[in-house]
């Protein structure tokens, strides 16, 4: 009986096999999406709560249970935060520090990135590794001697001290990101420019730069965000001339809750916007999953 209709038998087997595989496939996908959802919520839920609390009237902060859907829009908390003593000054400091960091790290880091991208020099791979390893150095250990050094130089408690520190912190990223950007500009184009009457510098400025510019802009924004968010070095290297995160951290314990939420949102927003703007380049750098 079993072999009476072998064709049908195998057909059934095949179908059930395929169904089983399909089920497993669906399960796998569901698990993946579940995991992704949990991870996204892990990050998004606090951001969401911070945002609605920051833009609600101040008494909402103390409410429990929390409202998931905001009832009333209000800039009261934000207004209070922005006009608190020291916030505008430290905001201005933060912007200055970030800009100086951006300029310094680009001026120093981009040529290094270019060299890594174009020249096969001896010890290139160790060099690449060493650049990255500077990040492994704890800021705590770095900051105390730096504070002493900056005291003797007379730039302690100034935005320059913080900018120098941030430049050092941003350097590995700047070098590696710019190097990957320059690699993506075909060397042929540069050589073609050389045969068409360019000096190496002209070839770089007229051909490589225009093509690398969007990527370099992305790298700059990344540096900006890095400096904008950095708090530890900023706290150690300044007393009066604080950057915004350092200032917020300093006054946090003595501040009312709605101030904290407003501050959190204020710190968060620029980073989010910038990262969103340059995510295309970050994906390109860290391995694109899909376009």
């Amino acid at each position: 009986m079993r072999n009476a209709n072998p064709a049908r038998e195998t057909g059934d087997d095949f179908r059930s096999l395929r169904q089983a595989r399909g089920r497993r496939h669906t399960l796998g996908r569901a698990g993946l999406y579940l995991l992704a959802t949990v991870m996204a919520l892990w990050v998004l839920a606090p951001i969401y709560l911070i945002t609605i609390t920051a833009f609600s009237p101040r008494d909402v902060v103390r409410e429990y249970p929390k409202q998931v859907i905001p009832r009333e829009f209000s800039v009261e908390s934000m207004d209070f935060f922005v006009n608190s003593t020291g916030v505008l000054g430290s905001l201005w400091n933060s912007v200055l520090v970030a800009l100086i960091t951006l300029v310094l790290s680009t001026i120093i880091g981009a040529p290094a990135g270019y060299a890594l991208a174009r020249f096969a020099f001896k010890g290139r791979d160790p060099y690449r590794l060493v650049i990255l390893s500077t990040r492994a150095f704890p800021i705590v250990i770095l900051s105390i001697p730096l504070a002493v050094t900056f005291l003797t130089w007379g730039i302690y408690d100034s935005i320059y001290a913080v900018a120098l520190m941030h430049t050092a912190l941003a350097m590995p990223f700047t070098v590696l990101i710019t190097s990957s950007i320059f690699v993506s500009v075909p060397h042929d184009l540069e050589e073609a420019a050389l045969t068409l009457g360019c000096t190496p510098l002209q070839a770089f400025l007229r051909v490589v730069m225009p093509l690398a510019l969007p990527g370099l802009a992305a790298a700059s924004i990344f540096t900006f965000v890095l400096s904008w968010n950095e708090v530890f070095a900023a706290v150690i290297l300044t007393l009066q001339e604080r950057t915004l995160p350092a200032h917020v951290l300093g006054v946090l314990t003595s501040s009312p809750p709605h101030f904290r939420f407003a501050a959190a949102w204020f710190m968060l927003a620029p980073s989010l916007i910038f990262i969103f703007l340059i995510r295309r380049y970050l994906l390109g750098l860290w391995g694109r999953i899909s376009r």
């Binding site: 075909p186 042929d188 184009l189 050589e191 073609a192 420019a193 045969t195 051909v207 225009p210 093509l211």
Partner: peptide, 12 residues
């Protein structure tokens, strides 16, 4: 003057 295998036409 040189013509490159990849053409090396400036994309910008």
């Amino acid at each position: 003057s040189m013509v490159f295998q990849s053409y090396a036409v400036f994309p910008h």
